[in-house]
């Protein structure tokens, strides 16, 4: 299978999956995925340290 066909196959596979997600189930899965992503070391927005870092950056933007 050549490179172009792989791109087409990816698009058609994604469309087919899209049609088979139950909307409520998909929403539940998305929320669980976001929760998982938030817990990863590279993300962690919801910690005291990260909030203070973000606050400092935003204050700097407001008062350069």
């Amino acid at each position: 299978m050549d490179e172009m066909n792989l791109d087409d196959l990816k698009r058609s596979e994604e469309q087919k999956r899209e049609a088979h997600w139950d909307p409520a189930e998909r929403w539940r899965v998305l929320q669980a995925t976001i929760t998982w992503a938030e817990s990863q070391a590279t993300v962690r927005r919801n910690t005291r340290q990260r909030c203070l870092e973000l606050q400092a950056a935003k204050l700097k933007q407001e008062n350069p």
């Binding site: 299978m1 792989l6 196959l9 990816k10 596979e13 999956r17 088979h20 669980a32 995925t33």
Partner: peptide, 21 residues
């Protein structure tokens, strides 16, 4: 069998590739 698959699961969407461009 095919080069790639897009699946649903109760744990999230899973894409399985047998080759990567």
């Amino acid at each position: 069998r095919q080069p790639l698959f897009c699946l649903t699961s109760p744990h999230g969407s899973i894409d399985v590739f047998r080759s990567v461009k």
